[in-house]
Amino acid sequence: MKKEDVRKIGKKMDKSKAKQWVKKYQKENPNATRGWLFGDDIINTLLSYDGCEGIWFFKGINEDGEERLILFPADTDGNVLDKSMKSLGAAAARNGVPGGDDPADDGYGCPPMCPENI
């Protein structure tokens, strides 16, 4: 990955343009999962891992063939954090999180749980 400050990757965008992009995707992919909702508990837990500078979002397929979004903490170089790189277990233990080197899943998919205002 290109060496840059991982914490600064991404930027805010115009809300109307964002909604246009989402609606276009939904129109062109009517049977696809539109998005996922994750709570701040799991986002903050991942961000609290020692050395976490960002979060990777990967699509995956579970045992039932359902598309899922998997979140992995990333280090300063954009690599996925794991036990061989940083002490994720120690950071998670401080926050009372079992399985501290685990990525995150189990967000709510849309559909069926979709926001009304997009």
Rank of each mutant, 00 (worst) to 15 (best):
R68H: 12
I55D: 08
L81H: 04
G109W: 11
I61Y: 11
E63Y: 12
E4W: 00
R68M: 15
A92D: 09
I42L: 04
E4R: 00
G51W: 08
A104M: 08
R7N: 03
I43T: 01
G100C: 11
S48V: 03
T76V: 10
F72L: 13
G78N: 04
K59C: 13
W21S: 05
L37Q: 04
E63T: 08
M13C: 06
G78L: 09
Y49G: 02
G60Q: 11
V80F: 12
K86M: 11
P111T: 14
A32N: 13
D40Q: 04
M1A: 08
A18F: 15
N62K: 08
N29L: 13
F72A: 05
S48F: 10
G89H: 03
V80S: 06
M85R: 03
A93C: 02
D75P: 01
Q20L: 15
I9Y: 01
K17C: 01
L69G: 13
A74L: 15
G89C: 09
N31H: 13
A18N: 06
Q20D: 15
K17I: 14
D101M: 10
I70M: 15
D101C: 09
S84I: 04
L71M: 15
G54K: 01
Y49Q: 06
S16G: 02
P112D: 15
C52K: 01
L71F: 12
F58A: 13
W56H: 09
G35D: 12
N117C: 01
G107N: 03
D14L: 05
Y49H: 04
K15F: 07
G89R: 05
G99E: 07
A74F: 03
N79F: 10
D82L: 12
K23F: 08
S87E: 14
S16W: 07
L37I: 10
Y25S: 11
P30C: 14
G109P: 10
P111M: 14
E4Q: 02
N79W: 09
I118G: 01
D75Q: 05
F57N: 06
G96L: 08
D75A: 07
G10W: 04
N79A: 12
K2P: 08
W56E: 14
K83D: 12
G39Y: 11
K86W: 05
Q20C: 01
D105C: 07
G60F: 13
A74V: 14
N31Q: 15
T76D: 13
F38T: 01
V6C: 00
S84D: 09
P98F: 04
G65A: 14
E66T: 07
E67R: 12
I55H: 02
A32T: 06
D40C: 01
G96V: 07
D82I: 07
V97Q: 06
G100T: 04
G100W: 10
F38G: 00
L69A: 15
M113Y: 13
D75V: 06
G65E: 11
S87P: 05
G96E: 10
E28A: 13
G109I: 10
